[in-house]
């Protein structure tokens, strides 16, 4: 029986913890070969969603189909075909890098020889070959994350679930992880990832949903979302705190599609930033700094929720 190209399908998917609704009736579909993202701030319900997708948390209501199967009745079969990178590492820090892959491979019932072959290949892929015999405990956060990614690939999964793959890593370690994930994507591995970094979502996701308070606020490719919910350019102005509010009032005269007054900055959404900056100067305003930049997903999020992603 040929399997449909829809690998995951969710309708009205809901997760409640007692009276609290963490995931509030979300709909989405995942297609084979795509990189799909959940972008949202802390507490949006991303991990709760990922745990339902990982078949370690039964949905409270709604429909969920993964690889054509029911996650409650066939959880074990589905999990055999998933790779999971949880938000918090679950590595055995007292064992070595290699032993971690051995233990995990055994959970999937893989023969020792096969685990050995794949371990060599995967450690090479995440650039950990030289640490294979080292204990995990002293490894840096970035190396542990890469090991978790290698481990999640031991069963050659159909879908790879990554919950905040680079949260807590320094910028350099983050770029190494991005690079590896990008390579996986190029090989056609189907990815689902959550993040609260707009640059991560922009770089890695073919398609994403913006999530807030358990609900999906918008869906599309990064480009589509920016086109739909923001302007081509943004003018960021910073004023002396004492004149911040007065400036905001005066700026209303500048023909912008939208203005956001943040605590420390004022954002003007306009098609042409340089033109708008000229209008600002014409009004007699003298910002401490000004910056014209392209719109990002951060702007989309601000537009949709009125808040910033890292709030």
């Amino acid at each position: 029986m040929p399997e449909s190209d829809i690998l995951v399908s969710a309708r009205g998917l809901t997760k409640r913890f007692g009276d609290f609704t963490a995931v509030d009736g979300i709909d989405f579909q995942l297609r084979r070969g795509e990189a799909f993202g959940f972008l949202g701030p802390n507490g949006a319900g991303k991990s709760s969603t990922m745990r339902m997708l990982g078949c370690v948390s039964p949905p409270s209501s709604g429909e969920l189909t993964i690889l054509g199967l029911d996650p409650v009745a066939d959880g074990s079969v589905i999990r055999a075909r998933l790779g999971v990178v949880p938000q918090e590492d679950t590595l055995d820090v007292e064992l070595t890098v290699r032993e971690n892959l051995l233990i995990y491979g055994r959970y999937f019932g893989l023969p020792r020889q096969l685990i050995k072959e794949r371990t060599a290949r995967l450690l090479d892929f995440v650039q950990l070959s030289d640490r294979a015999s080292d204990q995990v405990e002293p490894l840096s956060g970035g190396l542990k994350r890469r090991l978790t990614i290698a481990r999640s690939l031991i069963n050659e999964p159909d879908i790879l679930l990554l919950d905040e793959p680079t949260t807590g890593l320094d910028p350099q370690a983050r770029h190494v992880v991005w690079d590896r994930l990008f390579r996986l994507k190029r090989r056609g591995v189907t990815l689902i990832l959550t993040t609260h970094y707009m640059d991560e979502a922009e770089q890695l996701c073919d398609r994403l949903v913006v999530m807030d308070h358990g609900k999906i606020a918008a869906e599309g490719s990064p480009r589509e979302l920016i086109d739909a919910y923001s302007t081509r350019e943004v003018l960021e102005l910073r004023f002396d705190p004492s004149s911040h509010e007065q400036a905001a009032e005066k700026l209303a005269a500048v023909p912008a599609e939208r203005m956001e007054v943040l605590a420390d900055r004022i954002l003007l959404y306009i098609p042409n930033g340089d033109g708008a900056l000229a209008s600002v100067h014409d009004l007699g305003l003298d910002p401490l700094t000004s910056l014209v930049r392209r719109s990002t997903l951060e702007d989309v999020f601000l537009r949709l929720t009125g808040r910033r992603l890292d709030d």
């Binding site: 370690v56 949880p86 679950t90 019932g109």
Partner: peptide, 14 residues
């Protein structure tokens, strides 16, 4: 602490 149970729970083990 070790969270090896969470690791096992993500695999086919119930």
């Amino acid at each position: 602490w070790n969270r090896n149970y969470q690791a096992a729970a993500a695999s086919p083990l119930r």
